[in-house]
Nucleic acid binder design. Structure first.
Lengths: 120, 120
DNA sequence: ACTATATTTAACCATATGGTTAAATATAGT
DNA sequence: ACTATATTTAACCATATGGTTAAATATAGT
């Protein structure tokens, strides 16, 4: 029953393709924050953050609410639903280990814990 | 227990941000295909497709196997796992309807079917 | 060897992206 | 009104992206 547009997916995935923006979303997942608060952890100018917020807002992932001279930003996770459902479609392909890479990663993850094998 | 690099997520999400590339992945999910086969549905030159395949390959989402003068491409869904798990992290935010947008969309979806309310 | 087919590479172009600094805007506090 | 603070806008820059056409490369088929 999905009726979202492809264009929306474009914007959402593009927004997620930047580590600064993912970090901003992560931050907002623990509650709303003002722009300066969001900017604080980054070695980047405020205008750069404003731009990132613009990208996130256009993707529908956050909204900004004016509150006096500051703007409170909060997470709008809605669009992540369609992104998730797009990716989920491929779940079988990494879960059933149809691809070698996934298998390789699996093995390495286990090795990290146990490491009892002298395969090398 | 995720240990993937951020850079990898960047590449994966960026790769997914293009409708042509998502369509290519969709196509490959029903079995491997040659470059010309993949190119066929698109009103776009072959070199453009080659570039898209390059982006997908660099993101680890496909691999190309040389087979005579043609190249068989196949899906490597592995990297989608981390992308999925990143997004899944936010699942609560759209499922518990903490955000107004998600709620709004929900309502509109139901309204499409029932439409018995005269709330306006 | 020659020709056709499959694909990539090179060179180019327009636009988008991610950053900067300086200036503008809006509100809060006096 | 003046000053400080929060944020955005404008102008700019370098690089990335997504496309093009023309040429190169590799293999298949004769």
């Amino acid at each position: 029953m999905v009726k979202y547009s492809d264009a929306n997916l474009d914007a959402v995935f593009a927004a997620l393709a930047d580590p600064t923006r993912r970090a901003i979303l992560a931050r907002l997942s623990s509650g709303e924050a003002r722009v300066t608060e969001l900017a604080q952890p980054f070695a980047m100018s405020l205008p750069a953050i404003t731009k990132h917020l613009g990208v996130l807002e256009r993707a529908g992932l956050i909204s900004r609410e004016k509150d006096g001279r500051l703007r409170r930003c909060h997470l709008d996770a809605g669009p992540l639903r369609e992104a998730c459902s797009w990716i989920e479609h491929y779940r079988q392909f990494w879960e059933t280990r149809l691809d070698a890479l996934s298998q390789y990663l699996e093995e390495n993850e286990s090795k990290e814990e146990s490491d009892g094998n002298s395969t090398g």
